[in-house]
């Protein structure tokens, strides 16, 4: 039975709650795995939760104006918006979100939207390191959007639609129907773009963890920082679910979703632990080189 609008909103909140917790646990467990690779014990899996709680119970906070508050709000809206228009579990009533209301182009727009909003907010902070982080982030984003967009075009040509539900539906019935096997070039280009999107090594210079400029959120503190941390979890989850839907056959229940997204995220850790960091100009050249050519090739193959 089709649920009412109110019911769908309730389901959307439930779905959002699940993906937030899943994203946080994913970040925590990946940090733990990275620590094991480096021969350390590593932080507890629940450390992201404590960090968010701690940020939220700070006693004072500063403001740099209205845009400064809106930055994290836009970022969170970008994360939530990305997730809300992707079906997390194919055919599920609870986890399909609002995927029938928006298509792939809207999702791609939301991926970009958060970063732009963050750029405005961080600019209001007035810290020079924020501006450096924003310009690095936007430059790298523009670069990895090229192979990603090309691979999305290839997928759209292949399935003749931009509707994510239809794309997932076309991949059902055995793993040989996945885009991974029917259009491998597009998947390769998209996975390389994904490395840039998740900002792990070797493309981590944007957030530059634990260095002098920490990237756009240099001036953000207290509950605004907590909001950004929460968004990171949601955004990570949303991107993983999108990739799973487009290229790895989607998921028919939540267990399959968890296993598949975990493995996709593992690609990041695998590459990130093996390769050192690129400078921004190097990563731009990288994305506009071989991955773009692979993307073009995938479009040509899909078109002819």
């Amino acid at each position: 039975m089709e649920p009412t609008l109110l019911g769908r909103i309730g389901y959307a909140f439930l779905s959002l709650f699940v993906i937030t917790n899943y994203g946080l646990l994913l970040i925590g467990s990946m940090a733990r795995i990275s620590a094991k690779v480096q021969g350390r014990v590593g932080q507890p899996v629940y450390q992201p939760y404590i960090d968010i709680i701690k940020s939220s119970v700070k006693r004072n906070a500063i403001s740099h104006g209205i845009m400064f508050y809106l930055g994290p709000v836009f970022r969170l809206a970008g994360g939530v918006g990305t997730y809300m228009f992707i079906p997390a579990v194919f055919g599920s009533v609870v986890f399909r979100n609002f995927s029938d209301s928006g298509d792939l182009l809207l999702v791609m727009y939301f991926i970009f939207f958060g970063q732009l909003g963050m750029a405005l907010g961080a600019g209001e902070g007035g810290h020079p390191y924020s501006a450096i982080g924003v310009s690095r982030g936007l430059a790298q984003m523009t670069a990895f959007e090229v192979p990603f967009a090309l691979s999305v075009i290839a997928v759209a040509i292949q399935y003749g639609t931009l509707d994510i539900n239809a794309i997932v539906g076309a991949q059902q019935g055995g793993f040989l129907n996945w885009t991974l096997f029917t259009n491998p070039l597009a998947v390769v280009a998209a996975i390389i773009a994904f490395l840039g999107m998740s900002m792990h090594n070797p493309f981590s210079v944007v957030i530059a963890p634990q260095e002098i400029p920490i990237g756009p959120p240099t001036e953000y503190q207290a509950n605004l920082l907590g909001m950004l941390q929460t968004n990171r979890a949601i955004f990570n989850g949303a991107k993983l679910v999108l990739y799973m839907n487009l290229f790895f056959g989607g998921a028919t229940n939540i267990l399959v979703m968890v296993v598949k997204t975990f493995l996709i995220y593992f690609i990041n850790v695998f590459v990130g632990q093996a390769f050192p960091r690129f400078r921004t100009d190097q990563s731009i050249r990288f994305f506009l080189g071989v991955p773009t050519l692979i993307g073009i090739a995938s479009v040509i193959i899909a078109a002819v």
């Binding site: 940090a31 620590a35 350390r40 014990v41 590593g42 932080q43 507890p44 450390q47 404590i50 390191y129 634990q210 260095e211 002098i212 400029p213 920490i214 240099t218 001036e219």
Partner: peptide
């Protein structure tokens, strides 16, 4: 990191 301590640049 196992004690929840990490550096922060700002």
């Amino acid at each position: 990191y196992r004690y929840g301590i990490q550096p922060r640049p700002t």
